[in-house]
Structures are given as C-alpha cells and as structure tokens.
C-alpha cells in the first residue's frame, strides 16, 4: 500500500487539482456575488422607495462615509499583500502573516462596529429604520467574509512552514485564496464602503 500523503486521492497531477480547486472557488464567488448583489439591491430598493419616510426616520442616526472604509481597507491591504506573497514565494510566510494580521484587525474592527451601531431604539429594542437594517446586514455579510478569509490566511501561514505539503499544489492554493481575497475586497468596497455613502 502506498503511504504517499501528499497528493489528491485521484492522483491527478497537482496542476490539474489546483486548477479544479480554483474553478470551484470561482463558482462559489459567483454564488457569493449574487448574495452581495441582493444586499446592495435591498439597500437601494428601500432607499429609493423610502416607505412612509422610514428610510432614515426623523432623528435617526447615520454612519459617516469613512466608517465603511475603515473596515474595508484591511481587506484591500490583505489582498495586496497576498499578491506580493504570490510573487515572492521565498517570503511567502511573512507576507501571509501580514495579510492574516490585517484581516484579524479588520474583523475586530467590523465586529466592534456591529456591536456598537447606534441604530437600536433603547426602549423598544427595534431598529430605527430601513437604512439601519440594511447597513447592519451589510456589516454582517462583511464579517462573514472576514471569517472565511481568516481561516484561509491562517491555513496558508501554518502550512507554509510544513515540508509535507506539495509545493506545486500549494502555489495553486495561493492563487485560489488570492481569488477569494480579491473578491472580498471588491465586494467590501462595493457593499460596505460605497453603497452606504448613498444615504
């Protein structure tokens, strides 16, 4: 019995497996893209309808335009640093660690923002209006992106020190993770930064 632990069970070439994995992630990105589209659609639909003046009710709170960018910039930094890691495999671990730190900070900032959103009415516990509801949901979606990205980044850091992983397949996985990091940065800019700036 072979004790080879390095390769995919089908024993396809690592390039083939890597290409397949990247396609899979891109298809999941399509699904996630549809999810993000639905969040943005909801935002603009309710904003333009402004049902009973309830989009931002009188005395309702809004977020500063910079608030969204604060939780998106770490995503952008992580995506860019990950690109550097792909270009320079000799420093992959260092770059991946920086990306991980950036993501961890961003996730903390996003969580903190969610926990302290000023939208909830103290007495009833209800949200102030449709704007508050949409912004909160978008923030939740962004936090979900962060959690998935942290899992991937942590894996890349931990695995980069290992000798029992296939380097060819691992380089494909860097590219696959890169697709996800790039996508969540784009999604973050569109949903968390730009969309809420249209109040």
């Amino acid at each position: 019995m072979s004790t080879d632990t390095k390769f995919h069970v089908h024993h396809d070439a690592p390039e083939v497996v890597g290409r397949r994995e990247r396609l899979g992630v891109r298809l999941l990105i399509v699904a996630d893209g549809s999810f993000v589209f639905a969040l943005i659609f909801s935002y603009f639909y309710l904003r333009n309808l402004d049902q009973n003046g309830g989009w931002i009710p009188d005395g309702g709170h809004t977020l500063a335009t910079s608030t969204g960018w604060k939780v998106v910039i770490p995503l952008i930094i992580a995506a860019l640093v990950h690109r550097l890691a792909m270009r320079d495999p000799s420093h992959q671990r260092s770059f991946s660690a920086i990306a991980l730190l950036s993501l961890a900070y961003g996730a903390y900032a996003q969580f903190d923002q969610l926990a302290n959103l000023p939208f909830i009415d103290g007495e009833s516990g209800a949200f102030e209006g449709a704007y508050a509801s949409c912004v909160t949901l978008i923030a939740g979606g962004n936090l979900f992106h962060y959690i998935v990205a942290i899992f991937l980044a942590l894996g890349l850091v931990l695995r980069s020190g290992r000798t029992n992983v296939n380097p060819v397949l691992e380089s494909w996985r860097m590219r696959t993770a890169g697709s996800w990091f790039t996508w969540i940065a784009i999604a973050g800019v569109a949903a968390s930064a730009i969309t809420p700036s249209f109040m």
């Binding site: 309710l46 009973n52 009710p57 009833s124 509801s133 949901l137």
Partner: peptide
C-alpha cells in the same frame, strides 16, 4: 443566494426587529 438573503432578512425582522419588510419603519 438571493432567496437566502430574503430568508435572513425575514429572520432579522422576526428576531432583531429590523425593518426590511415592515412598512412602519421603511
């Protein structure tokens, strides 16, 4: 995923009193 978003919004309206589908709050 769009179906999923509709379900999440319904769940939020029911559980956190958001206002996606409540005409009183927009």
């Amino acid at each position: 995923p769009t179906f999923m978003v509709a379900m999440i919004q319904t769940a939020m309206d029911r559980s956190f009193m958001t206002g996606f589908f409540d005409a009183n709050v927009g």
